[in-house]
């Protein structure tokens, strides 16, 4: 899906549908199976396993306390798949365009810029972490509390230094608040169709269609 506005709206509709009911979660799963390049959109194995473990832990505790943990797990898994799809489709700079289109050249530009910088920083931290894992393998070190603490601190230190540099660059370029940008998007009929299906799923959940099935 090339249009970031439709992609965000689709993600919002399907996330809400999935969170609100098991019926919506099944719709979301079906949408993900039909309209995405499944293998390419899956998050990395480590990320997927850690998210699933987190969901299952919460679901397990919920179940033990008399809640409906199974329903929670079923509703949350499609949201993780959706997050992977959203992340894999992202193009640099598009959130800036979406921000300006949605909230205008001042607040929208700032929000878009924050979103872009944040995602860029997360990507950079992921790459740094991968390099550190390689360094640990070279040193013959294994993951433990004693190695994780300095590694976490170093990651934050590097990120803080990178943020300071970015702030300096923005200030040097004269950035104060907002900016001029003519938002541009490429919308295809297929994008609109897949969004329409997502929106329909959300509506069906809202009107609680499962009551009539």
């Amino acid at each position: 899906m090339q249009d970031v506005r439709l992609r965000l709206a689709t993600a919002a509709c399907l996330s809400a549908a999935s969170y609100l009911s098991v019926f919506g979660a099944l719709f979301t799963l079906l949408w993900w199976l039909l309209f995405t390049e499944r293998e390419k959109t899956l998050p990395g194995r480590g990320v997927l396993v850690s998210f699933l473990a987190m969901i299952l832990a919460v679901a397990g505790m919920n179940q033990l306390q008399g809640g409906d943990g199974l329903s929670y797990a079923i509703r949350m898994v499609p949201i993780i798949l959706l997050a992977g799809w959203l992340s894999s489709e992202r193009e640099p700079g598009e959130l800036l365009h979406a921000g300006v289109w949605l909230f205008g050249p001042k607040t929208g530009f700032d929000l878009g810029l924050i979103a872009e910088i944040s995602l860029q920083a997360m990507g950079a931290m992921g790459e740094e972490l991968e390099r550190m894992r390689r360094a640990m393998r070279l040193k013959g070190l294994s993951w433990s509390v004693t190695t994780m603490i300095p590694i976490g601190q170093n990651l934050l230190h590097m990120q803080a230094a990178r943020s300071a540099e970015q702030a300096d660059i923005l200030a040097l370029r004269g950035y104060r608040r907002g900016g001029s940008l003519d938002p541009a998007f490429k919308t295809t009929t297929w994008d609109s169709f897949t969004f329409f299906i997502a929106f329909l799923s959300f509506l069906l959940v809202i009107i609680r269609l499962e009551r009539f099935l």
Partner: peptide, 12 residues
């Protein structure tokens, strides 16, 4: 020896 020396750092 990795290209960027920061990548090797694991000590505080």
């Amino acid at each position: 020896s990795l290209q960027f020396p920061e990548s090797h750092v694991t000590g505080w």
